[in-house]
Design a binder for these strands. Structure first.
Lengths: 198, 198, 198, 198
DNA sequence: CATGAATGAGGTTTCATTCAT
DNA sequence: GATGAATGAAACCTCATTCAT
């Protein structure tokens, strides 16, 4: 598909995407604030001005990245809204969320590590809201506080787990499964606890 | 009150402390990179140059903050090294760590949210290492992967929990207890799981 | 209506005209330097590149505007050159100039308010020269200095008057007449003064 | 007074003033927008950053210039408010205003030629208001429209006169007197006209 | 203990302009 | 007759840092 390159650099039409890719890479490596547009441009072998043709501001590049991520999560939320509020549904939410995360590890890591930068973005807020919507779907509002923590912990560990266990022995897919298992456990316990306290 | 100088060690002047306080506040609010020395100086109603009397560089301010935090954690590690490697010891580690966190919430939040900035600090590395040392003390090296995740999750949730549940109903002290409870649970399970797999 | 092309001179397309209209509007509102081609293009809902099809440079747009204005004034000068140098002729010059100004208020206001930008344009120089030619026709070279000032003042007030009295009560046409009256008075006095000194 | 130079450039303490001087010079020559801070800095043999130590923004330099000018005019207004509203007072206002203008020719010329840039400044508005206050003091509110124009014309010609007659033969002081004479005449006529129309 | 003045490097952004299609 | 993509130059501004006083 993108194989008709070779003639000359093979730009055209995909520059926007290339900018996003490089930007994400650098943002993850060095943080948003520490990454300058000059750097991004140099990596792409274009001028800074070219970036501004595709994105109105530096922040806009970030927003673009967020939007790409938002979609799968939105779809997950949409799907979840139509399901019965059973434990099995909750497990499926975790499974699907885990899959979504696997596909956008970089961005998630970036969000995790650059919350200070992300916080003041409108899109950052949107993202946080989505997160809370997901949390709503896992936890029971009148559960014990510890059970609330369990649900939150399940979600949060899925974010963090991927890159903190980075240097662990096993391969990524096994790691992902282990994390999902723990998260599922936590939610299960939270739901069981429900009966005890309610 | 400020006359007990001369003995040296006694907080000579208090500007240094005030700088750290204001800096931490701003670093937490806006992130490290986004906070300029000008801002810090203005908040303190001194000139930028005055900051340089007390700290050699901007990074030095950060390092100062870290050091204040490192001490309690170092003490905890020191203490733990001398304890038997029992489940009860692990629980006590969590208890003490939870207490330490409560006393330095701001700084922990800062670290959590500015990992990108912190990563390239020597001190940042030190801090991360300490974290791993703690993790070593909770987990059993040959446990199942999921159990490793549980231990990591316990530790990590303690960091994150404080400010993500920020707007939750209950008061901070109750929240802290709930988080500690979940963490303890996780470590307990991890240790039990041990038998099943090892 | 737009079919009378081919004869040439007949407004070929009307984009060129639209560009000039929008450009003048923005130049007047914000000044020449502060108005970017991007803005002009956006107001017209075309791309910047389209502007370059019609005008070779930004300055060319300005030159185009000037030319449209130059014609009536040139005609006035041409006409005046053939008239006897009487007071009545001078009055008629003022009358005609006042009429010309009424038809190009925007552009005149622009020139008045952007002299700094206009000064270094070749066309700007041309325009200033025209102004001086007009002044030559009103004043007598050996008149008293005060009378020279009167003639200059007459001309200048006509320029400025239109938009400085903008918020005055009366309607534009009455205002124009009042300004013309004062200008005529000034020139009359200048010519009477002639006898006293010459 | 500033003669202790010779040792080494002789800056210190007067940089702020020097910035304003150079800035005004360049603003007058090339216009506000066309004058870059780089240029100003180069003329002063300092870095751009030095400008920013003394003025928070480019606009601030302009505002500084305006303030220096505002004072004399404010004093004039203050003085005029306490005088009886006679023709003689009006003449004295013109005399004093003429003197004030002579002392700040550059700035006035700048304002005249950069209205587009000045318009959006808060300080620009202030200045315009002062002008109107002065106009109020010269004209009678119920006079004929032509007489209003005369008063405005008197004021306005004083602004413009100085530099438009620049290349006229006579020396500046004589020019100033001639302009003042015409302005005085115009105001006198405006006040006489008063009786005829009412 | 602290300030006032300045610097050098670099940041984001905007602009007029070009050119292949 | 117009667009999409890009460029080179330069704009304004901010930052961490230094140093004489």
């Amino acid at each position: 598909m993108t194989s008709s390159e070779g003639t000359r650099g093979g730009r055209r039409g995909n520059t926007r995407q290339r900018i996003q890719d490089v930007a994400l890479e650098l943002f993850v490596q060095q943080g948003y604030e520490k990454t300058s547009l000059r750097e991004i441009a140099e990596h792409l072998d274009v001028t800074k001005a070219a970036l501004y043709y595709h994105f109105k501001t530096k922040e806009d590049i970030l927003i673009g990245l967020f939007e790409d991520l938002a979609r799968p999560v939105d779809e997950l939320i949409e799907w979840a809204k139509e399901q019965p509020r059973t434990l099995e549904t909750k497990h499926e939410i975790l499974r699907r969320y885990s899959a979504a995360l696997a596909g956008a590890e970089g961005l998630f890591r970036f969000i995790q590590e650059n919350q200070a930068a992300v916080r003041e973005l409108r899109t950052g807020e949107d993202f946080k809201e989505r997160m809370l919507r997901l949390l709503e779907m896992l936890r029971e509002p009148d559960a014990a506080l510890a059970d609330q923590v369990r649900c939150f912990s399940a979600l949060f560990s899925m974010h963090a787990g991927m890159f903190v266990l980075r240097d662990a022995e096993s391969d990524p897919e096994e790691k992902r499964k282990a994390i999902l298992e723990v998260a599922t456990d936590l939610v299960t316990q939270a739901n069981a606890g429900q009966g005890e306290k309610g």
